Computed example of a mutant assay.
Amino acid sequence: MSHVRWFPYNRMGEIEGRLVVGGRDGNLHVLTYEHDKWDKFVRKNGYIRNVLCHQGVCLVCVEDGDKDQFVIEQFYLNEDKKWRFLTVLPNELQLGGVSVALHDNSLYVVGGRTKSGERVNTACVCDLHSGHWSKMDDMQTKHCFCSSVIINNTVFVGGGEIDGHYSSNIVECADVRDRKWRTISSTTTCWPTLTSVSNRLVETGGLTQQRICSPSNIVELYDERSTKWLPLPHMTHKRMAHAAFSTQNGELITAGGYPEYSIESLKCD
């Protein structure tokens, strides 16, 4: 695949044979597989932290520096290719460094930090039909810049910062119906990216130590029976704070992050 330089966080998606990635430059990058060509759709302000593709629409989650808000917008690739405002976190929940996951037209926003820099363990849900926000139980750990994914009605949250000096390898989960959190086995690396491959939890990359910025190329699969992380083939490149995504045919794609800006893929059987 062709390369584009970005520093994504933990999400990208796929719409009709096109890979969609949000960059730290505040722009949306779209790769058309057939032509191996990138297009860039410019948003003037803010870091794109998360991209979720849903029913032909990109839900783009932006930390808007000018307005000092966390904004969720929509981008329609097949229409006029313009940004449309969707919603913003309520004032009492206005945070930076959050992670976002989508399930049955509900948007789950977890972790983050306050404007003063304090890490939080909050989790909330937005009904995309009504725009109504509700709170889940607080997580057991404070996560900032964490990774989240929803698999079989369970939201998994892991990694990120637990304070200004330490990164985390803690993973916790909650059923979207009872919204109560529990921890599972910690990942081998700190600050990994979590994703779903064929409805199974996979972690990629991260840091080898809590306080040292030494990226990893580890890839692991969580086995629910043994409650252990099992090794998969390593990535070619070491990376952290990157994007990871699984295509419909079960191919795992990892992209960007630090210090790498390449894209690579693994066919998972």
Score class of each variant (00 low, 15 high):
residue 103 H to M: 06
residue 223 D to F: 01
residue 210 Q to V: 11
residue 245 F to E: 01
residue 257 G to H: 02
residue 251 E to Y: 06
residue 216 S to L: 10
residue 244 A to C: 12
residue 209 Q to H: 08
residue 238 K to R: 15
residue 144 C to K: 00
residue 154 T to A: 08
residue 162 I to C: 14
residue 214 S to T: 14
residue 82 K to P: 02
residue 123 A to C: 14
residue 208 T to H: 06
residue 94 Q to S: 09
residue 54 H to V: 15
residue 88 V to C: 11
residue 264 E to S: 13
residue 227 T to S: 11
residue 172 E to Y: 15
residue 191 W to H: 08
residue 140 Q to C: 15
residue 68 D to I: 11
residue 116 S to G: 09
residue 168 S to N: 07
residue 1 M to P: 06
residue 30 V to F: 04
residue 155 V to F: 04
residue 206 G to A: 07
residue 107 L to T: 03
residue 118 E to Q: 11
residue 6 W to E: 09
residue 146 C to P: 09
residue 1 M to E: 04
residue 206 G to W: 02
residue 232 L to P: 07
residue 203 E to D: 05
residue 142 K to S: 14
residue 129 H to E: 09
residue 160 G to A: 13
residue 213 C to L: 13
residue 178 D to E: 05
residue 161 E to I: 15
residue 20 V to M: 12
residue 116 S to H: 08
residue 66 D to C: 07
residue 152 N to W: 02
residue 199 N to S: 11
residue 217 N to R: 04
residue 55 Q to C: 15
residue 97 G to W: 02
residue 48 I to V: 15
residue 18 R to Y: 00
residue 65 G to Y: 09
residue 67 K to E: 09
residue 14 E to M: 13
residue 163 D to C: 15
residue 205 G to I: 03
residue 143 H to V: 14
residue 206 G to R: 02
residue 196 S to L: 05
residue 105 N to G: 10
residue 59 L to N: 04
residue 229 W to C: 08
residue 71 V to Q: 02
residue 65 G to D: 12
residue 151 I to C: 09
residue 129 H to F: 10
residue 127 D to M: 13
residue 107 L to V: 09
residue 45 N to C: 14
residue 241 A to Q: 05
residue 219 V to N: 04
residue 81 K to E: 11
residue 117 G to N: 06
residue 108 Y to G: 00
residue 251 E to R: 12
residue 35 H to P: 01
residue 260 E to D: 11
residue 101 A to P: 05
residue 23 G to S: 14
residue 81 K to M: 13
residue 169 N to I: 11
residue 30 V to E: 00
residue 94 Q to E: 12
residue 23 G to C: 14
residue 256 G to R: 07
residue 269 D to R: 10
residue 95 L to W: 01
residue 123 A to K: 03
residue 114 T to H: 05
residue 210 Q to H: 09
residue 213 C to K: 09
residue 267 K to M: 09
residue 102 L to Q: 02
residue 99 S to M: 03
residue 104 D to C: 10
residue 12 M to S: 13
residue 89 L to M: 11
residue 11 R to G: 12
residue 262 S to I: 08
residue 124 C to A: 13
residue 154 T to F: 10
residue 173 C to G: 00
residue 209 Q to S: 10
residue 50 N to R: 06
residue 51 V to L: 13
residue 57 V to A: 09
residue 269 D to L: 07
residue 226 S to K: 06
residue 131 G to P: 08
residue 220 E to I: 01
residue 200 R to Y: 00
residue 197 V to Y: 03
residue 119 R to F: 01
residue 195 T to V: 10
residue 86 L to Y: 06
residue 38 W to C: 13
residue 233 P to E: 11
residue 216 S to F: 00
residue 2 S to W: 03
residue 229 W to Q: 05
residue 163 D to R: 07
residue 211 R to P: 00
residue 7 F to W: 07
residue 79 E to R: 12
residue 47 Y to A: 04
residue 55 Q to E: 15
residue 22 G to R: 00
residue 48 I to Q: 03
residue 180 K to N: 06
residue 122 T to I: 14
residue 56 G to T: 13
residue 241 A to F: 02
